[in-house]
């Protein structure tokens, strides 16, 4: 009847996911460590694992929040090109002040400014797109994909306009890179993600009500506009964190949320969020453990994830879940 009482129903499944996530993390630490290099490997791998877990959380939480707020389960912030919007902001910064100047700014200060810009832009855009009275989902899918292409093209365009030396500064950011996580921003990312937890968990019941749609939510006394705003701002923040840490990954959010939705059908926001994050950790940390330590960087996890996620996207569209 309430989210807390649905927890026992899914307790076993959450336990299984938690176990799998622990195994994935353990594998990441122990696989392929050369003899005698334990101390070094542990130190080196800890930062990376924390970053990957943050990314797993940021992408799952932002995607799930987006699904609830926009009442669709097909579009995700990444499919709508919001990671590209973040890159565009970054490229724009380098374009306007130059690569050397951008490099000389304290990375944490630069990142904070980018996060704020991102929250403002994305909230504005979301509100404009999603608060109109009745938007046909098919239209939104179309608009979203066009926006994605637009942001990506604009940031590519800006990248071509800037000095080749400046380009080097942004180039690294523009592709998904689970192998070379940006560890400079680890602490501030931990802080930002931790900051969203009280919002996500504290408002989990409100997000459940929000998912019922505008009119039912207002009928039940939800302060609809306020919750929408908070939700969109939180999504903007989380997308910034994940994009800054590992770059754009288009279909990862879609893949992990739908795995969780299938695994825990009918679960409430709070329970589902735990499940989605655990699925994301299993996929990301487990996948990276295999690719990095078993296959020895011979493949790219992001390609595999995007391929699987892309298949999920196609299946959902063809199955007509967009009704």
């Amino acid at each position: 009847m309430r989210s807390d009482s649905t927890a026992p129903r899914f307790g076993l499944r959450l336990g299984l996911l938690g176990g799998a996530a622990l195994i994935a993390v353990a594998l990441f630490f122990v696989l392929g460590v050369p003899a005698g290099a334990w101390a070094f490997a542990l130190k080196f791998r800890t930062g990376k694992v924390v970053a990957l877990i943050l990314v797993a959380f940021a992408i799952s939480a932002s995607t799930q929040l987006f699904h609830v707020t926009t009442r669709n389960q097909i579009l995700t912030p990444a499919i709508m090109g919001f990671d590209a919007l973040y890159l565009m902001i970054q490229t724009g910064l380098v374009y306007s002040i130059g690569g050397m100047a951008a490099l000389s700014i304290d990375p944490v200060a630069k990142f904070s400014a980018e996060v704020v810009a991102m929250m403002v832009f994305s909230t504005g855009l979301f509100l404009w797109l999603f608060t109109a009275k009745s938007r046909d989902l098919h239209l939104l899918v179309l608009v979203g994909i066009i926006f994605g292409a637009l942001f990506r093209s604009l940031s590519n365009f800006a990248a071509r306009m800037i000095d080749p030396n400046d380009f080097v500064v942004v180039q690294g950011e523009m592709f998904a890179r689970f192998n070379a996580v940006n560890l400079d921003l680890l602490w501030i990312s931990i802080g930002l993600c931790a900051g969203t937890v009280p919002i996500l968990w504290g408002m989990r019941h409100q997000f459940d009500v929000l998912a019922l749609g505008r009119e039912t939510a207002i009928n039940l006394g939800l302060r609809y506009k306020r919750v929408m705003l908070i939700s969109f701002a939180t999504i903007g923040l989380l997308v910034s964190v994940s994009t800054a840490l590992v770059g754009p990954v288009t279909f990862f959010g879609l893949l992990v949320t739908h795995l969780a939705y299938r695994f825990l059908p009918g679960a409430r926001f709070g329970v589902t969020l735990i499940a989605t994050t655990l699925v994301a950790i299993v996929t990301l940390v487990g996948g990276q453990a295999i690719f990095e330590h078993v296959l020895g960087f011979k493949g790219t996890l992001s390609v595999v994830i995007d391929m699987l996620g892309g298949l999920v996207f196609l299946t959902l569209l063809l199955k007509g879940a967009a009704k």
Partner: peptide, 18 residues
């Protein structure tokens, strides 16, 4: 009323008490 969330009947009715 278009309900997109996957809910059981008793969960939906339970929301009336929110």
């Amino acid at each position: 009323n278009v309900l997109t969330a996957r809910l059981t009947v008793q969960d939906l009715v339970g929301f009336g008490r929110y």
